[in-house]
């Protein structure tokens, strides 16, 4: 029984950290402890949650995607351009944006599979390419004045709940379903865990990897659409940087860098920890720069603790063997 409780605590350490932070900031400044503030945090983080879940698919499959930020930049510019410069209907612009995301993911996947180079390197390359394309298309302009109906995605409310939060919940549910319930999901874990074994077990590893990159592309595109809808404008500088936030959140949330393990709720918790840190430190009067330091330290502490636990575990296992 005692072991079981300890097991649960270990499993949900990250969740406890989140609650501890919330209580800590709440005690320092009660303003933090308001419904409005929680909704703010969730609204601000909705797009990060969606992109981070997309990235998690790739990371669980043993890959990495550095190009997430510039995928967002490119998707945002193209979506805004369709609406504002070519006067396409909103739904069509969104469709085009989403398809762009899937295609960008597909390009990453194809390059990774065909060139047989680690996706980290591949996406380092494609990131730069996407950056170039984005700035050429936008000509470094900001596209202002997105239509209100479009802005609803980022700013609107349904039954008193921000629409973007609803979208994030739906995405999380879908992702969780795919990863936990379908054989495709198990294949993703398998490839991340041991690619050779997966191949010999009859998995078409190349095809699964392509799909994984495309799924990430779609999620990232949605994330980008929410982001520009919230801002009401798009530039090529909207999005870049998100890849590192996502990576931090994923690692915080227990997605292994080696692949093969991780859960959707963990990633969401990871994003929320970063969000709570930002918001909380803002409220108690600490600026952006101390926030960077805090986020970095939290990440180091989390992975350090995780590794320490694993080592204890390994030692225990070894002793039994």
């Amino acid at each position: 029984m005692k072991d079981k409780i300890i097991g649960y605590i270990k499993k949900f350490t990250i969740l406890l950290v989140l609650f501890a932070l919330i209580i800590l900031f709440g005690l320092i400044n009660p303003v933090f402890f308001t419904w409005q503030n929680f909704m703010n945090i969730l609204t601000q983080q909705a797009y990060v949650i969606i992109a981070a879940i997309g990235l998690s698919f790739i990371m669980i499959g043993g890959g990495m995607d550095l190009s997430v930020g510039y995928q967002m930049s490119l998707v945002g510019i193209i979506t805004a351009m369709c609406m504002m410069w070519y006067n396409l209907p909103i739904w069509l612009s969104i469709m085009i944006g989403m398809i762009t995301g899937v295609i960008l993911g597909l390009c990453n996947g194809l390059a990774a599979v065909k060139l047989k180079v680690h996706p980290l390197i591949i996406t380092l390359g494609t990131m730069t390419v996407y950056q170039g394309i984005s700035y050429i298309i936008s000509n470094s302009n900001t596209i202002f004045g997105l239509p209100d109906a479009f802005k609803f995605i980022g700013q609107g409310y349904v039954f008193g709940i921000p629409f973007c939060i609803i979208l994030a919940v739906i995405v999380a549910a879908i992702a969780s379903f795919i990863l936990n319930k379908t054989y495709f999901g198990r294949y993703v874990y398998a490839i991340g865990s041991n690619e050779d074994a997966a191949h010999l077990a009859g998995v078409n590893t190349s095809r699964i990897k392509l799909f994984v990159f495309m799924i990430c592309g779609a999620f990232v595109a949605l994330s980008s659409i929410i982001l520009i809808a919230r801002a009401g404008s798009a530039t090529s500088a909207t999005g870049p940087g998100t890849e590192f936030t996502c990576m931090t959140a994923a690692v915080l949330g227990g997605i292994s860098f080696k692949g093969g393990s991780g859960k959707v709720w963990g990633v969401i918790t990871g994003v929320l920890i970063l969000g709570v840190l930002s918001s909380g430190m803002q409220i108690i009067g600490l600026g952006t720069y101390p926030q960077y330091i805090a986020k970095g330290l939290v990440l180091l502490a989390a992975v350090g603790f995780d590794n320490y636990q694993k080592e204890v575990h390994v030692k225990k296992d070894k002793k039994i063997a």
């Binding site: 865990s193 074994a197 997966a198």
Partner: peptide, 12 residues
Amino acid sequence: NQGCFLEKGIGW
């Protein structure tokens, strides 16, 4: 390295 997934369960 080729036969099984060490980090996963037996049933899995």
